[in-house]
Design a protein around this nucleic acid. Structure first.
Length: 461
DNA sequence: TATTACACGA
């Protein structure tokens, strides 16, 4: 088996596109009489190497030369096809099995039932199962679990629990999968309490909950905003030696996030770190962004600095969130410093960065500084957009710097083909309130000429 | 030697 895997690896290296191991084996076989079982192994090896297409091809060609693959090889293949969602191919394999007399076993049926459950209605599945039972197949715990899961996903809890009861009678005792599926179904219906009761019953019956069953319940509590319960379950699981995974951490942190209890989330993460549970950078990033959204840019910044020590490198979007938050809270100096830091760290500020900065500067009557930033972005090859034009013109108008507003309007038109009616109207409005008609007419005249000049110019894409 | 499970809102 390992030898064959290596053989495939070799063929992949030598000729990745048309490494025809099967053909070579058949050719060699004429001289050295292979045990046909190598074809069986080849199918498995291909599936293991994630070369499902080749595995399927080998299956078909083996059958063509008269070899009958084992049911285990077929199951390997089916499993590979299911994972790639090649439903039609699954049924091709199944039909071929029937045609050449390979008897499907419980694994085969369970995988096929799973396929049916995923893309058919459950009643069709039951027809299939009845037919299988006539062929001597006895539904086992996996079959029941698959069905229970399918019912729960469709909100048919009554049917799911009916099967759960049947399981005892049929001697297929419910396992962790069964309970987790049922708890998940209950949680989806907003019945976390009942799910928790079921959890207790499960423990009482001697099953030890694993990460998945804890996660299901914790997730259910989080969805209902019951963070106290989530938290105590999290501690319970750690106490029982079940390690929280990235899903657990994320669900709880996001649960706190939804309740705007970011401090609790931060505290929890520190606790988890103390238990040496690895926290993925995504979770920290979520918190950083969330703190920004809740107008706590300094908390966000210090968190960012803390996790940077672990080697986390924020991307432009995270930086922008922080910068936007600083701007929104009117901490312009800090925002400008952050932009400088970005440049230092070789993270190029983009249009979003500049738009926020300019907008903020203009709003606090520092349009001149805004214009300075605008010039900088142009220098760095980031062209300004209409929003930036609006911000600057409105800013200058508010500061009654009509001349700069007008010349800037011309600049945007000339250099960047930005003709913003709103900005123009703002200028006209402030002028009409503060100047005589003649001045106004002169402005309109000049702008008109500017426009005509633009139209005559060749279009620059 | 194999089969079934937890959430994001695309």
């Amino acid at each position: 088996m390992n030898l064959l895997c290596e053989l495939i690896e070799m063929v992949k290296v030598v000729s990745p596109d048309d490494g025809d191991v099967f053909g070579s084996l058949v050719l060699c076989g004429e001289d050295c009489n292979w045990d046909p079982v190598v074809f069986d192994m080849l199918i498995k090896a291909y599936v293991k190497a994630n070369m499902i297409e080749q595995g399927f091809g080998t299956f078909r060609r083996s059958v063509e030369v008269g070899f009958v693959p084992s049911v285990v090889a077929c199951n390997y293949l089916l499993n590979g096809l299911v994972k790639l969602r090649c439903v039609d191919r699954c049924w091709e394999v199944y039909e071929e099995m029937g045609r050449i007399g390979i008897h499907p076993n419980a694994y085969t049926f369970n995988m096929l039932i799973n396929v049916l459950c995923k893309d058919q209605d459950v009643d069709k599945v039951n027809e299939f199962i009845e037919k299988m039972e006539e062929e001597g197949f006895d539904p086992d715990v996996v079959t029941y679990n698959t069905l229970i899961n399918s019912y729960c996903r469709k909100g048919r809890l009554g049917d799911a629990f009916y099967l759960y009861k049947i399981m005892y009678r049929r001697g297929a005792l419910p396992d962790l999968f069964s309970y987790t599926a049922l708890m998940n179904g209950l949680c989806k219906e907003g019945k976390v309490r009942e799910a928790h009761q079921l959890f207790h019953r499960m423990v009482h019956r001697g099953l030890s909950p694993d990460t998945m069953s804890y996660n299901t319940l914790i997730c259910g509590y989080c969805k209902e905003g019951k963070m106290k319960e989530s938290r105590s379950l999290l501690y319970e699981m750690i106490g029982n030696g079940v390690r929280p995974d990235s899903f657990t951490c994320r669900v709880v942190v996001e649960g706190y996030g939804k309740e705007s209890k970011l401090l609790s989330a931060l505290n929890l993460l520190s606790e988890l770190e103390r238990f040496e549970i690895p926290i993925s950078p995504d979770i920290y990033e979520y918190l950083v962004v969330k703190l920004c959204e809740e107008n706590r840019p300094f908390a966000a910044k210090s968190l960012l600095e803390r996790i940077s020590q672990y080697g986390y490198v924020p991307d432009i979007d995270v930086y922008n969130e922080l910068l936007l938050s600083l701007c929104k809270c009117n901490y312009v100096a800090e925002a400008l410093a952050l932009k400088a830091e970005m440049v230092n760290k070789n993270i190029k500020p983009n249009i979003v960065t500049y738009r926020a900065l300019i907008d903020c500067l203009c709003k606090i009557d520092k349009s001149m500084e805004g214009e300075y930033v605008m010039k900088e972005m142009v220098k760095f090859g980031v062209p300004p957009d209409t929003a930036i034009c609006k911000a600057l013109i409105n800013g200058y108008c508010k500061e009654m710097d009509i001349n700069r507003a007008e010349s800037l309007l011309g600049f945007f038109a000339r250099e960047f083909q930005i003709f913003d009616t709103e900005s123009y109207n703002a200028l006209v409005k402030v002028l009409s309130e503060n100047a005589d008609v003649a001045t106004l007419m002169e402005l309109q005249d000049r702008m008109q000429k500017e426009l005509e000049l633009q139209r005559k110019m060749p279009c620059v894409p």
